[in-house]
């Protein structure tokens, strides 16, 4: 994983973004910046436009006005520089775990041995070694999502977008996955933009939290999370900063 030497550099910039679908305006004049290596969580209520924002950053949908910039370049269609982890996993069911993970590498014309080795590394990173030749339908939800993460990571994108990736999982699996994600984050130092409606999750994971307004989405407030890494659930729940932050965010969202 390539270390970004300019750790303070803005890598993603959302600039005066407007996104509308026919009559419906989902995003209105949204602007924020993400520094390289940051872990950003975007919180908002269901239906406020979070997924739309992420899909626009990914280049899946076109903005109506404004732009998304990746290291200064406009993003208007999907690119392997921006990885994506879906809420519903979206693994290719006709491919095995390892074939899913190496998908991007195959496109980049990596040789077979190199591809497989690299893919195995990422499969190991998400604790799925031994499951390389299984099909998604043979895995549990949590395992599928881990494959989704490995697949996005293996492609070595500059930024990884995550669309409520743990929403479909039970509470226990979710906690395990969050801790695993942070481990991976520390190891790979990727820039992550993670959306969720779960405040605890956001505080646990992020460096900064962007709270959105109700539809059409705009930035309501940005919170800094001053909790040391590495974080884990044992120490988190009694952490004063965490408690205070949660109160503040709750108060804001309830208005």
């Amino acid at each position: 994983m390539i270390q970004n030497n300019n750790m303070e550099k803005t890598i993603v910039e959302v600039k005066n973004l407007y996104v509308s679908f026919s009559e419906l305006q989902a995003v209105r004049n949204l602007s924020f910046k993400v520094k390289a290596g940051d872990f950003i969580c975007v919180i908002g209520q269901s239906g406020c436009g979070k997924t739309t924002i992420l899909n626009t950053i990914a280049g899946f949908i076109k903005s109506t006005k404004g732009s998304v910039l990746l290291a200064g370049t406009k993003i208007e269609k999907p690119t392997p520089k921006i990885g994506f982890v879906f809420q519903k996993y979206v693994l290719f069911p006709w491919k095995t775990v390892i074939e899913n993970v190496e998908f991007g590498l195959k496109i980049k014309d990596f040789g077979e041995r190199k591809r497989k080795n690299l893919a195995r590394q990422y499969i190991k990173m998400v604790n799925l070694n031994g499951f390389e030749n299984k099909y998604p339908y043979q895995l549990s939800g949590g395992m599928e999502q881990r494959v989704g993460i490995a697949r996005a990571l293996a492609n070595n994108p500059d930024v990884i977008l995550m669309d409520e990736p743990f929403a479909s999982l039970d509470a226990i699996t979710r906690m395990v996955m969050q801790e695993l994600l942070l481990e991976i984050y520390i190891k790979t130092k990727k820039t992550v933009i993670f959306i969720t409606h779960n405040i605890d999750e956001a505080i646990f994971l992020a460096d900064r939290i962007i709270v959105l307004t109700k539809k059409p989405a705009q930035v309501r407030k940005i919170f800094q999370v001053n909790v040391q890494r590495p974080r884990d659930y044992k120490t988190m729940s009694s952490n004063k900063e965490y408690i205070k932050l949660k109160e503040n965010i709750l108060a804001l969202v309830k208005e």
Binding site: N55, A58, G59, F60, K77, P78, T79, P80, I82, G83, F84, F86, K88, V90, F92, F103, G104, I107, K108, R151, A152, N155
Partner: peptide, 13 residues
């Protein structure tokens, strides 16, 4: 499903 296409494109397809 659109999401398969999106996933593939975001992986460089």
């Amino acid at each position: 499903e659109k999401s398969y296409i999106w996933a593939a494109k975001s992986l460089g397809a």
